[in-house]
Simulated assay, not measured.
Amino acid sequence: MKINLYHSVILFALLGLAACNNQSADSEAEIAIPVSVEDLKPGFIEQTINTTGTVTATKEATLMTEMAGRYSLGTNPRTGKPFMLGDHVAKGQVIVELEDEEYVNNLGMEAKELNLRISEQNYTKQKSLFDKGGVTQSELSNAEVSAVNARDSYELAKIQLEKMKVRAPFNGVITKLPYYTQGTRVANGTEVVSLMSYEKLQLEVNLPEKYINQLEQGQQVRVMNYTLPEDTLQGEVKELSPAISTETRTFAGKLSIDNDDLKLRPGMFVQAEIILDRKDSVIVIPKDVIISNQRGKSVFIVEQGTAEQKQVTLGYENQDRVEITSGLKANDRLVVKGFETLRSRSKVKIIK
């Protein structure tokens, strides 16, 4: 009996020791929950509309010949070589010139210029005589008509001669340059060059109906392209349609994009953010730390080494972050990693 009693005492002691060890292990496991935290500081957040589309040039033109003649491609003064694709041209610069001596001779530029000079001299003389009473009003009027006709004839000839030259109508870049052998004759209406100006680009977009009362002309726009991951271009809302499509429940808009360095090219697909509003000095947190359940939205913060679950109210949000309008304050230590396994009052260990 004494031996059995002794064995019973030993067994109870071992069971008690195991229970203490398990309790100690559980306590240590709770204390060891690793989390990363972010000290909350006032920041800013913007309410934006995200949209996508293809950018186009604000100016583009296809230039054609207005007269027939022998084709002559001009020389780019910047390179000293004939114009080629991608060359920049200035407004008024001659890109292509046509040659036709017969046509030029028929215009009689020299004769018309000489006739204009003589007519103007005669009018000046007649006016001087009229002031002295030497000629009649009718004679003076006839001299004036002759001078006007001579000037009109000369200016018309200059216009006809100018049609032999194809000039750039704006500062731009050559995007198309059909090949013609120098000196070969081309007909009137022949396409000879296409130009684009894309220092400013435009983006036509369709925007959700719900934003129609929040959008205004002049609102700031940010534009990104996947080929330019480090560059964000600026722009603005240029035009807005007041009509909503009954099929798509969207309304049309046009965005103007500053492209001074020509980083974006016409035809590129871009993502644009239209900035509707901005809030400063507010609490902003990552969206992915928010826990949703039947009681609403909540997050975990750390207070004196334990996790506290806080119910929060959300405000503005963007793709990654959200404003907290109630439930958190500046300097709270927000759990950003390891919150998935936490419960309120869990012991935590902060790691980097």
Rank of each mutant, 00 (worst) to 15 (best):
E216Q: 13
F269W: 11
Q234T: 14
L228Q: 07
A252H: 04
G218S: 04
G235L: 05
T232K: 05
T250W: 02
G267A: 11
N259A: 14
V223Y: 00
Q219D: 04
V237H: 00
E216V: 03
T227P: 00
D231G: 01
S241M: 08
G218K: 02
N259K: 12
T250G: 03
T232M: 08
I257C: 14
L262Y: 10
L255K: 10
D258K: 15
A272N: 11
R249H: 09
R222S: 07
L264S: 09
R222E: 12
I274Y: 01
T246K: 13
L228R: 06
Q220L: 07
N259T: 15
P266K: 02
N259Y: 11
S256W: 05
S245D: 15
E216Y: 08
Q219W: 05
E247A: 13
E230R: 03
K238A: 14
E273W: 01
I257A: 13
V237W: 00
T250K: 10
T248F: 08
Q217L: 09
E239H: 07
I275N: 01
D260F: 06
D261Y: 06
E230M: 01
E230F: 02
S241C: 10
G218M: 04
V237C: 00
V270A: 02
Q234F: 07
G218W: 02
S256H: 06
D258A: 15
R265M: 14
T250L: 00
L233Y: 04
A252M: 10
L262T: 07
L240Y: 10
R249I: 00
T232D: 02
L255F: 12
E273K: 15
M224R: 14
S256I: 14
L233N: 08
K238I: 10
R278Y: 03
G253K: 08
L264H: 07
M224W: 05
A243D: 15
G218I: 04
M268G: 09
V223L: 03
P242I: 14
Q220R: 14
E230W: 00
K263W: 00
L262I: 11
Q219F: 00
I244Y: 05
L240I: 12
I275V: 15
L240R: 11
N225Y: 02
L264M: 13
S241K: 09
P266G: 01
D261N: 14
R265N: 13
S256R: 13
D231P: 00
